[in-house]
């Protein structure tokens, strides 16, 4: 009987060295403070995250709206550019109407005389023309962006090479200075740059055989090819081009 009681007592007794034997830990004030601070910080972080998400959402909407606006502005700018080109074409035609037309069967003197007379007649009609009258501030970024997209990067290597062909600042036949001014003559001695087809296909089309885009160095000029006149220009439209 005694042995049985001893066995029961032994089984019921907790094992020696258990946690219950240790004295219970009492949280210090400092620890309480730290825990409280951590909780507050977590809450603040959560709040900040929510704020950031909200801000990002608003920003994304603003960017999207901005992009839409810019696209709309670009479209409007390009449309306005097109209108100004049409206005120039009207002016060119009016000036040309004062002269006997060329038929393609002229001698060089007649062609030269026509060119000089046409240039004079155009200058007389747009004597007050200034830089930006056709390439206005709104359309310039769009055009520069298009030109550069086609001329930057490894694949654009051939196009960069092309715009140096016949370009007065890079031509192998020697440098012929071209003074870029509105209504100035394009020098007769200067070659005209080749314009890469890839660039021409992304720029707004111009009236056939009246206006053309050409490069002088990195500058894009709008040239009246019959009158040999610089109508307007954009400085530094092309990216930097390595010299030979």
């Amino acid at each position: 009987m005694t042995a049985a009681w001893l066995l029961i007592l032994a089984l019921a007794a907790p094992a020696a060295g258990t946690d219950d034997d240790k004295p219970k830990h009492k949280e210090t004030d400092a620890e309480k403070e730290a825990r409280k601070r951590a909780h507050e910080e977590a809450e603040e972080a959560e709040k900040r995250a929510e704020e950031t998400a909200e801000f990002s959402e608003k920003l994304a909407k603003r960017i999207e709206k901005g992009q839409e606006q810019r696209q709309k502005d670009t479209e409007e700018a390009l449309k306005d550019f097109d209108d100004r080109v049409k206005d120039y074409l009207k002016l060119h035609k009016k000036a040309a109407a004062t002269l006997p037309p060329l038929t393609g069967n002229e001698d060089p003197a007649a062609v030269a005389a026509y060119r000089v007379s046409l240039a004079q007649a155009i200058r007389a009609r747009r004597g007050a023309a200034r830089r930006g009258d056709v390439f206005d501030a709104k359309v310039v970024p769009a055009l520069v962006d298009r030109v550069r997209t086609e001329l930057v990067g490894i694949e654009a290597g051939p196009a960069r090479k092309v715009i140096k062909e016949g370009n007065p600042k890079f031509d192998e036949e020697g440098y012929v200075p071209v003074q870029i001014r509105v209504n100035a003559d394009y020098p007769l001695r200067a070659p005209v740059s080749t314009v890469p087809p890839s660039v021409l296909l992304v720029l707004p089309p111009l009236p056939h055989d009246v206006l053309e885009y050409r490069f002088v160095g990195r500058d894009l000029i709008l040239r009246d090819l019959e009158a040999n006149l610089i109508v307007d220009y954009i400085l530094g439209a092309a990216p930097p081009l390595p010299t030979r």
Partner: peptide, 20 residues
């Protein structure tokens, strides 16, 4: 060519009939 003025297209001896 790149050294030619496009107005050469009017020169009768080149038979371009005013076209590039």
């Amino acid at each position: 060519g790149n050294h030619d003025n496009p107005n050469q297209r009017f020169y009768k001896q080149f038979n371009m009939n005013g076209e590039r």
